[in-house]
Amino acid sequence: MEITHFKTAKGIYSNPVVLSDAPDPTIIRAQDGNFYLYSTGVGIHRSADLVKWIRVGEAFTEVGKPKWEPGGGLWAPDINYIDGQYVMYYSMSVWGGTQTCGIGVATSDKPEGPFTDRGKLFRSNEIGVENSIDPFYIEDNGKKYLFWGSWFGIHGTELTDDGLALKEGAEKQKIGGTAYEASYIHKRGKYYYLFTSMGSCCEELKSTYTTVVGRSENLWGPYVNKSGGRMLDNKHEIVIQGNAFFKGPGHNSEIITDKDGDDWIFYHAWEVANPSRGRQALMDKIIWENDWPVIKNKTPSSTSEAPVF
């Protein structure tokens, strides 16, 4: 029997798409048309198609690095374009410094930086939320908000019009329970989707990190699972969990829509074949079923059809 090979119009890609340590990815399509991925560190990668990535440098010069948390690392950035400039929120912490860690903000005219640090927005012990890391920015109904949190509840508050400070008098509000960190909110149709991660992120192939989601018709919740259980009570739906090839998939990025209208999500995971590379960046397509985000088999793909741009 003759075997016939069919070639689709779409290309094929393989995971991971960033073959080096790139944890906690955040992505933006910049004004130059390219995509930029920022990760804990804060290293920057660039791509034209979400598949082929090259490292373009660091967000901060050595002299320009934030210094308000002595000895602190720069974790889990969140990149945005606000009022004509690139605005990056970042966590700064020493390991285990749950009271003194906090969130800062930096700006640049170019997506590849260098970024100018604008300083600390708050520390945990100043805002009353332990382990205040993992920032996420969103605009809704003309207002700007920041969400954050790790294992002590997901919280949010309003920012100033330029996004560079907390709005005076704004109160914080809790929207997620104590099982979660790494929040990201995506608006689609009438629903807001709160993506978070749970489990252990950083134990190499023993990592249990899992990406989960709930949805709400209001930015401030309540976010619920399919049965109506609240994320405030640590109830959720699983989006991505580990498999035989990748362990600990989590801390997802913003969702990017391609030319065909397909949605793509990035996250990090440990590759079983190459754990020494650290938490590499992976990409998968989201399929929407009954207004719920689904990844095929709820696990990372090894190969798949590529996005179209």
Rank of each mutant, 00 (worst) to 15 (best):
Y81E: 13
T303W: 03
K247C: 02
P135R: 10
K7A: 08
K67L: 03
L159N: 10
N274L: 05
S183N: 13
A244D: 15
R123L: 09
L282H: 01
Y89L: 02
F246N: 02
A106N: 06
G214H: 11
H5C: 04
Y137K: 03
G228P: 14
E204A: 12
N234K: 09
K10M: 11
V18K: 09
L37H: 09
R230H: 14
K226D: 06
I133R: 15
V294G: 06
P300L: 12
Y38V: 01
K52D: 01
I185H: 11
Y267M: 11
F6H: 07
N34E: 02
G41W: 05
T211N: 12
F266I: 01
R277I: 00
S276Q: 13
L232W: 01
R188S: 13
T160H: 08
N34W: 02
S47R: 07
K187E: 02
F35T: 02
S47C: 08
N15T: 03
T196D: 03
G113L: 04
V212L: 15
D284K: 10
L121P: 00
Y145W: 04
N34K: 12
E139I: 01
F195D: 14
K259T: 15
E305V: 01
Q173C: 10
T208Y: 02
I185C: 05
I28K: 12
D233K: 10
Y89S: 04
I27L: 07
K65D: 03
E305C: 00
K298E: 15
P66S: 14
T160N: 07
I255C: 09
S207A: 07
E130Q: 15
F195L: 13
K110W: 08
A76M: 00
W220Y: 13
S253P: 09
E126G: 09
E305I: 02
K65C: 00
F246R: 01
K206Q: 10
V213I: 13
H155A: 10
A269I: 05
P114Q: 10
Q31P: 00
P111G: 10
